[in-house]
Simulated assay, not measured.
Amino acid sequence: MLVLTRKPNEAIRIGDEIEVRILSIEGDQIKIGIEAPKNIEIHRKEIYLSILEENNQAASISLNHLNQLK
């Protein structure tokens, strides 16, 4: 893991297309802005994990259940 120190209004670049900027620091919260191409999905980690779980559940539906829908 790369660990960087940044101040408000400073940014880091990821490749040629992604920029992560520190917008503000208020107490124990940091607001960040992410600029990336529209084809790159950006999610909070808990949302991403929820999407993965839902996809896994949908993929595990048996053929028997699908045949019942006919």
Score class of each variant (00 low, 15 high):
47 I>P: 00
36 A>P: 00
68 Q>V: 03
42 I>V: 15
55 N>F: 08
50 S>H: 12
48 Y>V: 02
4 L>Q: 10
6 R>V: 05
14 I>F: 10
43 H>K: 14
41 E>P: 06
23 L>Y: 04
34 I>A: 10
38 K>N: 07
46 E>R: 13
21 R>V: 10
22 I>T: 02
45 K>Y: 11
43 H>C: 04
69 L>S: 02
38 K>H: 07
12 I>W: 06
41 E>N: 13
29 Q>G: 00
59 A>C: 03
39 N>T: 13
49 L>K: 13
61 I>K: 14
53 E>D: 13
67 N>G: 00
23 L>M: 10
63 L>V: 05
54 E>V: 07
43 H>N: 13
45 K>T: 07
4 L>N: 06
9 N>W: 09
28 D>L: 06
17 E>Y: 12
49 L>G: 01
40 I>Y: 14
20 V>W: 06
9 N>D: 09
12 I>D: 02
56 N>M: 12
20 V>S: 01
16 D>G: 12
4 L>P: 00
61 I>C: 03
25 I>R: 09
52 L>M: 14
39 N>V: 11
51 I>G: 04
10 E>Y: 09
56 N>L: 14
51 I>W: 06
54 E>F: 05
17 E>M: 08
25 I>D: 00
3 V>I: 11
44 R>F: 05
70 K>D: 00
70 K>H: 05
25 I>E: 04
18 I>V: 15
1 M>L: 06
55 N>M: 11
40 I>H: 08
21 R>I: 05
16 D>H: 12
6 R>M: 04
11 A>G: 03
43 H>D: 08
23 L>R: 14
53 E>C: 01
17 E>Q: 13
59 A>I: 02
11 A>K: 13
11 A>D: 03
17 E>F: 12
42 I>P: 00
19 E>A: 15
24 S>N: 10
29 Q>E: 12
55 N>I: 11
29 Q>H: 12
5 T>W: 06
44 R>T: 04
11 A>L: 07
1 M>D: 08
37 P>C: 06
67 N>M: 11
19 E>I: 14
54 E>T: 08
16 D>W: 06
16 D>M: 10
48 Y>N: 05
53 E>L: 10
40 I>N: 09
54 E>L: 12
44 R>K: 13
32 I>R: 04
26 E>V: 01
32 I>C: 06
27 G>I: 02
35 E>V: 10
46 E>Y: 07
29 Q>N: 12
14 I>V: 14
14 I>D: 03
65 H>E: 14
53 E>R: 15
47 I>N: 04
30 I>N: 01
57 Q>E: 11
42 I>Q: 03
12 I>E: 04
24 S>W: 01
45 K>S: 07
37 P>W: 10
12 I>F: 10
43 H>L: 15
35 E>F: 11
60 S>L: 06
1 M>Q: 07
11 A>Y: 15
63 L>C: 01
3 V>D: 01
36 A>T: 14
51 I>A: 04
41 E>D: 11
62 S>K: 08
22 I>G: 00
35 E>W: 09
47 I>R: 12
62 S>Q: 07
25 I>N: 01
36 A>Y: 03
12 I>P: 00
25 I>Y: 00
46 E>S: 15
33 G>L: 12
24 S>H: 02
50 S>R: 14
70 K>F: 05
37 P>A: 09
62 S>C: 01
42 I>A: 12
1 M>V: 07
15 G>P: 05
64 N>M: 08
15 G>W: 06
24 S>P: 00
53 E>V: 02
6 R>E: 01
